[in-house]
Amino acid sequence: MSESLDLRLALAETELENPVLPYLRQDRIPHIWCPGCGIGSVVTSFAEAVRRSKLDRDKIAVVSGIGCTGRVAGYVDFDSMHTTHGRAIPVATGLHLANPDLKVVVFSGDGDLTGIGGNHFIHAARRNMNLTVICVNNFTYGMTGGQVTPTTPSGANASTTPYGNYEYPFSLPFLADAAGATYIARWTSLHSRNVTQSIEEALKHKGFSFVEVISPCTTLYLRRNRLGDGVDTLQYYQDNSILKHGADTRETAIDFQGKMLVGKFVERQKPTYLDAVNATCAKLIGDDYQLYGKTPPEKEAEKKAAAKGKKKAAK
């Protein structure tokens, strides 16, 4: 009798528990994000993606720069670094190269990632550095009060373009593609399940994987552009997102309140930075070279393959 009651209580507790909670530093909640902001739903998707991926969460490190999205590193319960403005990718590069067993994830906003940090973004993509980069793109610098960013659509209003943005924005999937990223997807914060799936794929992808999530900034971008509240924006996302997997990234530009292509645009394989380092050094140095950053099973497999090759040659 009491046993079944315990079971029921345990079940009730399980049902009540938010599945994301174990992935958050609960002693850091409440967070600083505004009502209607999309960052939280991306974090939820990330947590769910990690859960589904079955990766060892203690071998995942989360790095972010400065800004609203930059705060993600402080709320998620992983090894995490909250770095300087724009420099999340270099820090992630350092973590990854110094310990290739880590899966390093960068959380960054559009201003942090492609404004002050744009140089690092294109170079990490060019090197096919084995990192996962998640960009919450809300078209504005939120934490500093709604200034124009490299992704703000032409014509949109920002605090530093009070008469409308006269610059041409970046299309981030196109930028990432041109720079050499090997996994590229875009969704909006409405597409929670797709975001989850893409992040899971990105985590398992070997190479530079990039997931862009278009997301509302209710307090600044929406208000300043008279676009209503968070719900209105989700409606806009629903009405204007066009699913096109494998789309040519040249077609992914976003006009002010225009149509947006979403989907998985790019997925290809090519040697990562460390693969290339190892291949070059092994060729040059020969047997003395110790492969850098291969996991023990990988090294074991390579040894076996090499031994097999030798045997075959001997026969």
Partner: peptide, 14 residues
């Protein structure tokens, strides 16, 4: 900028 902070990522990886 990248060099001086990438090394610090390296430190926190050991």
């Amino acid at each position: 900028l990248a060099a001086s902070i990438a090394i610090q990522g390296g430190v926190w990886a050991g």
